[in-house]
């Protein structure tokens, strides 16, 4: 019958018009179509149902059924491995590593299963960078004294520090004002989309340091998942695969579109030379990787070391 299941789908980031917002809408619509309206998915956009930590708690407890979400470390510190700097180098490497049978997916899926979450697959965003106002840096030395906002999730601030910047913890809602008034010089570790859309009129430069590859994951609470019969589970999985496949083709183009938009709006887009990037990679891997190993364990870090590629 129509409306047999009502499922709640949300994300901590992205309004209706953002790539994640659109992906949620598409996923929900496809599920509705494939089930002839038997399964209704209610989508809630960024902030509507609360902040990141609350949403993830509600998700793990089963009060939110589905999410497209960034990795969170609150239930399992091993999740920090997803923020390992210079884990993948370049788009081709990233696409291959994060694909369904890629090595990154094989690392992350069991961790999510242990949390009680059903894993559909990744929703890649692109490579993060350092967006700043007034001046920019492409080396450890130039970065001295520059303050950039960083999420407090380990090891993101450690990474940005190792690159020579000062990482400042500021809540997302206060970043705009903080850049405007000069509390910080910019933002770090986000793909260019967020910096252009949210702080575009404040920022002058985006340095494509690519120290992190940012990706969301399509997930479902295990309890909500097992409430569905096999046919319905198939419908959700199929719809998810379609969303994921589309994004794997679209992510790079989407990122390039935002680079262009940034340039049109007067932001300078800077790609460090191979030499500059190599120096950062060396520093960051030497300084931060051992710290990550302490948190996630040698077994996972061995996989990382075996698979991570060397800079081109």
């Amino acid at each position: 019958a129509a409306g047999e299941h009502r499922l709640v789908l949300t994300s901590e980031a992205g309004d209706r018009e953002s790539p994640v917002g659109k992906a949620m809408t598409t996923w929900a619509e496809k599920i509705g179509e494939k089930s002839d309206g038997r399964i209704r998915v209610d989508v809630f956009f960024q902030g509507e149902l609360g902040g990141q930590q609350e949403l993830f708690d509600q998700f793990v407890r089963g009060n939110v059924d589905m999410m497209i979400t960034w990795p969170q470390t609150s239930y399992d510190q091993r999740m920090s491995v997803m923020f390992t700097p210079y884990l993948v180098m370049g788009w081709d490497d990233a696409i291959e590593s994060y694909a369904e049978d890629g090595w990154v997916s094989e690392v992350v899926q069991p961790i999510y299963n242990d949390m009680g979450l059903h894993y559909f697959g990744p929703f890649p965003e692109g490579f993060g960078g350092i967006a700043t106002k007034g001046a920019y840096a492409t080396s450890f030395e130039d970065a001295q004294g520059m303050k950039v906002r960083s999420q407090p999730i380990f090891p993101l601030p450690q990474t940005v520090q190792a690159m020579g910047f000062q990482a400042v913890p500021i809540d997302w809602s206060e970043v705009y004002t903080s850049i405007q008034t000069g509390v910080v010089d910019g933002d770090s570790s986000n793909v260019i989309y967020w910096d252009v859309e949210y702080f575009g009129d404040q920022l002058d430069y985006f340095v494509q340091s690519s120290h992190n590859f940012s990706t969301f994951y399509l997930l479902m609470n295990e309890g909500s998942w097992s409430n569905l019969d096999e046919e319905d589970q198939g419908i959700l999985s199929d719809a998810a695969s379609e969303v994921i496949t589309t994004q794997f083709q679209a992510a790079r183009a989407e990122d390039e579109k935002w680079i262009k938009t940034a340039q049109e709006r007067g932001m300078e887009y800077i790609v460090p030379t191979a030499e500059q990037k190599g120096a950062w990679v060396e520093r960051v891997r030497a300084e931060v990787w051992p710290q990550i190993e302490e948190v996630v364990g040698t077994e996972i870090m061995d996989k990382v070391r075996a698979n991570a590629s060397t800079p081109e």
Binding site: G145, K147, P152, P157, Q166, A167, V168, P169, V183
Partner: peptide, 13 residues
């Protein structure tokens, strides 16, 4: 720490 020492403290929050 942030303004005078230019060394922000993480985790204070």
């Amino acid at each position: 720490f942030r303004s005078a020492l230019e060394h922000p403290v993480f985790g204070l929050e």
